[in-house]
Design a protein around this nucleic acid. Structure first.
Length: 315
DNA sequence: AACTACGCCAACCGCCACGCT
DNA sequence: CAGCGTGGCGGTTGGCGTAGT
């Protein structure tokens, strides 16, 4: 038997909030506060809503000083920096962005920011070449780690690793593909060090922040895609779990001075408890230690409007 | 003009942590 | 200490608007 629901679902209104409901809720909270009890609040306020729904509506929409609309470059930078360091801890990230809600940031990440990053990570044939900055002290966003003439290693198929390589404080995002099926970890102290790539199957590696396999049978998986929830569902492999472990692990490495730890395999395939809980100061440090120009430098070189929504690699 | 695909975002769901009894 | 209730969180969904065909 499951736990009792938090409210009587039969007598609770769902769906979009009406202006009347909004004003009722707002008025009540401004007058009496939440009273520390969201469950009881709707009844007191004369609302036929679940307490949780009220809480969400207040926090995400009605409470004062909520910022809506475009995210600034600085906000982009903070989100990316923190996501790279701590993963999808939206509430922590939101705490660093006054006026933004975790829901807002989550939506923004899922619909826009992630695509920007994915756009950066496309193989060159599928991506517009970035317009490298003319300024001599700025490192081009895509720079080869292994090949001096080309930013990319050749690959016969898209079964390999996509690797982001931080070099000092300059942004440097080499892409390389290999046939290795070994999980590849980076432990350098940089936001990009957390952009991991995940071996999903012998001939398929995943990279980036989220991906989906086209098949419910991972053994026959032949595609990965990014974005477009309606197209390909994420199934079975629990990619988010993979990724979050990787990110969590990596952050631990970062805070330990970037030391390599030999538990990487299990970090992917087993349950490793998160030993490190981020304090606010740590979050701030992550933000401040990232080069201020890194993210904006990256984003400035992406053709935003044309960033590919879906990328499917078939082989 | 009609239909379809896609993007966006508000809202919901379910799980977990924590505090209270 | 166990059980319960609640708050908080992250993932996911639903619906609407818009772009594309």
């Amino acid at each position: 038997m499951g736990r009792a629901p938090c409210c009587d679902k039969a007598n609770v209104k769902k769906g979009p909030w009406s202006p009347e409901e909004d004003s009722k809720l707002k008025e009540y909270i401004e007058k009496y506060g939440t009273g520390g009890n969201w469950i009881a609040l709707p009844q007191k306020a004369g609302l036929k809503r679940c307490g949780k729904s009220c809480r969400l509506r207040w926090l995400n929409y009605l409470r004062p000083n909520i910022k809506h609309g475009e995210f600034s470059d600085e906000e982009d930078r903070i989100i990316c920096t923190l996501f790279a360091s701590i993963g999808s801890r939206w509430s922590i990230i939101a705490a660093q962005l006054p006026g933004r809600t975790d829901n807002d940031i989550k939506n923004y990440w899922n619909t826009k920011l992630k695509k920007k990053l994915m756009g950066m990570m496309l193989p060159p044939s599928q991506r517009k070449p970035p317009a490298f900055p003319q300024s001599s002290h700025q490192t081009p966003p895509f720079q080869s780690q292994q090949l001096s003439s080309s930013p990319y290693k050749e690959c016969s198929s898209f079964s390999g690793l996509l690797e982001l390589e931080p070099t000092n404080n300059n942004i440097s995002v080499p892409l390389s593909f290999s046939n290795s099926t070994t999980p590849f970890f980076q432990t350098q102290e940089s936001w990009v060090s957390s952009m991991k790539y995940y071996p999903v199957k012998e001939n398929l590696l995943m990279f980036g922040c989220e991906g989906s396999c086209s098949s419910s049978d991972i053994g026959s998986c032949t595609q990965i895609s990014y974005g477009g929830r309606d197209i390909i569902k994420q199934e079975e492999m629990g990619f988010q779990s993979f990724i979050s472990h990787g990110l969590e692990e990596n952050h631990k490495f970062m805070l330990n001075g970037g030391e390599k730890v030999n538990q990487l395999q299990s970090a992917y395939f087993g349950e490793i408890p998160l030993e490190y809980a981020m304090e606010d100061d740590d979050v701030k440090q992550v933000i401040s230690t990232s080069n201020n120009n890194m993210i904006s430098s990256l984003f400035n070189h992406i053709d935003d409007s044309k960033t590919q929504e879906k990328v499917m690699y078939l082989y």
